[in-house]
Amino acid sequence: MNVFRLAGDMTHLLSIIILLLKIRATKSCTGISLKTQELYVIVFLTRYLDLFTKYISFYNTTMKLVFLGTSISIVWYMRYHKVVKQTYNKDQDTFRHYFLAIPCFLLALLIHHEFTVIEVLWTFSIYLEAVAILPQLVLLQRSRNIDNLTGNYVFLLGAYRALYLVNWVYRYFTENHLVRWIPWLSGLVQTTLYADFFYYYIKSWKNNEKLQLPA
């Protein structure tokens, strides 16, 4: 464990906590894409398959359970909670997220480290996580005013993978130059997708004005 990866995990955890707080405190999920949240549940389910078969550390197991639990409860709130589900922007959150999942799965069948179920599904989760934010970014462009909590949620979500990129650079130089193209390139794509959001988020923060994404 290095400080970059710990910072990345904490940033990721904070983003999820902020989203849960927004939903529970305001009883609203306006501006949040259910498609992205569902993709994240798939990402965690396919990535943490060996949760009960491989014990790494107390931290690793705990964080996996927290990520699974929180992401599933967010989808539950947005789908089934009587008050929250009324606030879901169903008519704007129209991104066909299966169009994202299927190519990722096919790519994982083609490019992976070893052809086993666990490994292919793990690789699928890495590819899927890279593009899972797209429905959310599209929804942000459609929804005129973005509330602060939603903006902070997306920013922290993008920042976590950027910190992981730094972690991978650190590990490359400190752990006998092991190359790990699949997470590296996926993480690079994932972080790049946030580029224009980061630009508008930092601009709105500097000018102390409402966050607005150009349509």
Binding site: I56, H113, E114, N167, L178, R180
Partner: peptide, 10 residues
């Protein structure tokens, strides 16, 4: 060993 290396990350 490559896969093992990946395993410790979330």
């Amino acid at each position: 060993q490559e896969r093992e290396h990946l395993k410790d990350e979330l």
